[in-house]
């Protein structure tokens, strides 16, 4: 297991470096001179030159990349070129909002999706199964930003039960929780559908296995068989999906954060792209890539814990 974990971590490091390098190069493909865009029409050539120097834009791309990676390894994500704020501080300031949103969404998706899928499997081919299938597919096909707008219109604008925008008042947990509900729900819906479908098919596959038949023949109650023997096996593929899912949720969170005007990593990166604030874009992306990879590593390792075949492979 240790060897497996170490191997997985090394792969993760290579993934982070590769992804960051790729993103670094893609950012350079955004049309327009960042110095000109940032400084606007009043900028004189000397100001533009000075800004280009500060942003290292006159250096070749590989020099910029090496300097950037070196700084990242030292834990320095650079400084906002407009106000000199450390990027790491800016990212850490908004990161909890994104993590709470993504994590809350995945928990919510599991809490709704697993029972839904299990019920559908337990009552296979019944009207309940068909309704569940319809709801699941509907959830999967509605993009989070559409779900977000619909939820916002219904619960915030029409019914006025929940706030429209923002992340809530700092230090007021209840207020922050109210601001979290709609974005979390919008982001979770797709995964409710995925998880429900996945659990249903896993459960149906699991109940045909020998150890489940044995448990049933031993006289265990159907509920005990389901929770102790069927679900345990059925959850394995779900765990793997959740790792990837967490990463996707981070991506989906960008749009959700913009729609709900909610602070977070995606919102920070989006704003920085708008103003070509390279250090903030790069710093934000490094953290996003790191989180995505970390989520996958955790999923893989936990998958290995649950299924011995994985770690022995």
């Amino acid at each position: 297991m240790i060897v497996y974990t170490v191997r997985r971590l090394l792969t993760a490091v290579a993934t982070v470096i590769g992804a960051v390098t790729l993103l670094f190069l893609i950012i350079r493909l955004i049309p327009g001179d960042p110095a000109v865009v940032m400084l606007g029409p009043r900028a004189s050539p000397s100001m533009i030159a000075s800004m280009r120097e500060r942003m290292m834009l006159d250096e070749s791309v590989h020099v910029q990349l090496l300097a950037f990676l070196g700084n990242v390894l030292r834990g320095d994500l650079g400084r906002d070129v407009l106000n000199e704020l450390p990027v790491l501080g800016m990212v850490l300031d908004v990161l909890p909002f994104t993590i709470v949103l993504a994590f809350g969404s995945i928990v919510l998706a599991v809490l709704i999706g697993v029972p839904l899928g299990t019920l559908a499997a337990a009552y296979r081919n019944s009207w309940l199964d068909r309704v569940t299938a319809f709801v699941s597919v509907a959830f999967i096909t509605v993009p989070p930003f559409v779900a977000g707008l619909l939820l916002l219109l219904l619960f915030a604008v029409e019914l006025r039960w929940l706030p429209v925008s923002g992340g809530g008042v700092r230090g007021d947990v209840l207020n922050q929780a109210r601001h979290l509900i709609l974005p979390m729900l919008a982001l979770a819906l797709t995964w409710v559908g995925y998880i429900a479908r996945l659990i249903r098919s896993s459960v149906l596959e699991e109940i045909t296995k020998d150890h489940v038949r044995t448990a049933t023949s031993k006289g265990l109650s159907p509920g005990r068989v389901l929770f102790k023997h069927v679900l345990r096996g059925a959850l394995i593929p779900t765990i793997a999906v959740l790792g990837v899912g967490f990463g996707n949720l981070l991506g989906g969170a960008v749009l959700i954060e913009i729609i709900f005007n909610r602070p977070g990593l995606g919102f920070l990166i989006f704003n920085a792209i708008e103003s070509r604030n390279y250090p903030v874009v790069q710093g934000g992306l490094v953290v996003a890539v790191f989180l995505y990879t970390l989520a996958n590593v955790i999923a893989d390792v936990s998958y290995g814990f649950v299924d011995p075949r994985i770690r022995e492979a």
Binding site: L152, L153, A156, V157, R160, P163, V164, S165, G166, I258, I259, F260, N261, F267, F270, N271
Partner: peptide
């Protein structure tokens, strides 16, 4: 002062009194 990026969301926020 709240930096609300999307004008539509700003309008919703105004409509509900936020």
């Amino acid at each position: 002062v709240l930096p609300i990026l999307d004008p539509l969301i700003a309008e919703f926020s105004f409509d509900v009194g936020e």
